[in-house]
Design a protein around this nucleic acid. Structure first.
Lengths: 329, 329
DNA sequence: GTCCCTTCTGGAATCGTTTCGATTCAGACT
DNA sequence: AGTCTGAATCGAAACGATTCCAGAAGGGAC
């Protein structure tokens, strides 16, 4: 910029005014500066701008696992929305480690992001909560609960309605012994699903449900499924709380020689792309993950521009499939 | 930092020295400064540091579609590796738009990233190439070819060996009319696959292959499959060049009432998580996408630290499946 | 006591912008 | 001619850190 000023024979402040579209510049000045800019191939330095203005035009995105298709889709939505508003996205992936979660929050803070979209690995982790309390920029939780003292917006799914519809369907088919193989109970979605299922089942007096919490992993699905199906009175229907878990469940069912839906009915989560070609087709509770990212980005921009925190709820839908049938006998 | 200096009764330069681990500080000075830092809750400003030193400790990641599971997995690998070296990752997703590609490259440049990992949407696009020539930081291409005049490292897949093995298998089963429903020919992987298939088929004189290029989309797969199978002499085996394309192909086959492998054999790409539960099991050419991200990150760090550009090749493997059988008759 | 050397510390310049107050100058008015 | 106004421009300070240079102590050796 100094070079540009020198070449144009003007002061750096004038160059800055021209480049920032300040109206107090004469046409002749504008031309001289623009010529010099073109001649020297000058490019502004966003770092220096950010340093001066305090606005880095960047937002952080904290995911448990960016390779998870649901989260990847959400990030794609956020990237799009933020790009349209001149913001860049810094992404992290904690791989489920709560220490990394806390570290990342601090790291984003040091980088002076203007906002943070996050799905923490554990809502109750002290280190994470500490880091969040220190955090000063805009905060938007994605499908997570957070303590009152933290001022933040949130975008959450209405897991209850989708789950309730699934349970209703199973009850209507005649199932009375259900099981939910759930994810980590320390995050909102798993809690909501468990609560929804427990509540929906009350409609039929003699119906019962077993909830098996664990991690969002194939191994948890595998173990839980084997245990459940090997018990004295196994469930006639299983609701699977995550696409990773599903893999383990499917593997376990194959090993046990159990057929879906003949031996056990199955409801799963988040229709993954090729699932429609699995036979029998899988009944599932779906949602629009891209939307979560888009909305999250909108909320964070709102906060950055001085808006007040608010929570937005997105729907989930139950989709029937051949994997659900009346129980035997 | 000024506040810290004032509270400790020392100069800012001394505070900086203490905090940056400069050996020229007395223990008493160190203690006074550290006390003041703790008392004031001081946190360094990475923006200001970056401005002064020119090192932003950030790297860009440019994907065609971050929601694609392969790319998402690669980004997860890159994030992990970069995090371990103190770098943050800025992610973009161009949704296949070449203009956005060029814009993003410039945007990363303005943000002074120290390196860029990228998969461009079109290797030959002029605007993209222009932007790349202007780009001054470290450059690592992910499974893309690039012109000689651009100094960059690259991590590429050996698509040929996996594809050749697939073709060999089909030829051995007796197939003589193959088809490859391919992605966009303006990027390396699609070109490599097409070339590999054309070359491998020569082993058997009377064998032929039709290559149908297009986009990496379900609709392309659907259209191409319908056209191919509706032709006078349809192929007896189809190789599908992408997981999005596969969806369209599967849908088309269902509509046409064609059974795999009875009516047509199928080889696909990039075993997606639940594919193993699709019946018949899908033969596919697989690779390790996380590795691409990890290696890409290593290469970019190498360049940042003054290393010379180099290209690393990763293997692909053909995995047999029930979707391949001898052709009818 | 002087000189030199080492060790530590302070002050100032610097990175690339933006912005504020000051300055210049042309033209209008008295 | 003198004063005033407003537009256009300039110079300098500031953002928050790092780093170089100079200088101040302190310790030994003579």
């Amino acid at each position: 910029m100094k070079d540009v000023a020198q070449r144009a024979g003007v002061a750096v402040s004038s160059v800055s005014r021209v480049l920032s579209g300040n109206p107090d510049v004469s046409p002749v000045m504008r031309n001289r500066v623009m010529d010099a800019v073109a001649a020297l191939g000058y490019e502004k330095d966003l770092i220096a701008q950010g340093m001066r203005s305090g606005a880095t035009s960047s937002v952080g995105f904290m995911a448990v696992d960016i390779a998870n298709p649901i989260i990847a889709a959400a990030s794609a939505g956020a990237i799009r929305e933020l790009r349209n508003n001149g913001y860049s996205l810094l992404i992290s992936s904690s791989d489920g480690s709560t220490e990394l979660d806390a570290d990342y929050i601090r790291s984003f803070q040091l980088r002076r992001v203007e906002g943070l979209l996050l799905s923490v690995a554990d809502e109750e982790d002290v280190r994470t909560l500490d880091a969040l309390e220190q955090f000063t920029a805009a905060l938007v939780f994605m499908d997570r609960a957070f303590p009152r003292n933290i001022k933040a917006s949130a975008v959450v799914y209405d897991h209850r309605s989708g789950m309730a519809a699934a349970v209703d369907h199973l009850l209507d088919l005649g199932h009375r012994k259900l099981a939910l193989i759930n994810g980590a109970p320390r995050v909102r979605p798993a809690r909501e699903r468990a609560n929804a299922v427990r509540q929906a089942i009350r409609r039929v007096k003699e119906a019962t449900v077993v909830v098996r919490g664990g991690s969002y992993s194939a191994s948890h699905g595998y173990d839980a499924c084997k245990t459940l199906m090997g018990s004295a009175s196994p469930p006639t229907a299983i609701i699977v709380g995550g696409n990773q878990i599903l893999q383990g469940v499917m593997a376990a069912l194959v090993e046990l020689g159990l057929k879906v839906p003949d031996d056990v009915s199955l409801v799963t989560l988040d229709n993954v792309p090729l699932a429609e070609f699995i036979s029998p087709s899988l009944a599932c509770v779906t949602r629009d993950p891209v939307n979560m990212g888009t909305l999250g980005a909108e909320l964070v921009l709102e906060l950055i521009n001085g808006g007040t925190p608010r929570t937005v709820e997105l729907p989930t839908t139950f989709v029937r499939g051949e994997s659900c049938a009346a129980p035997r006998g």
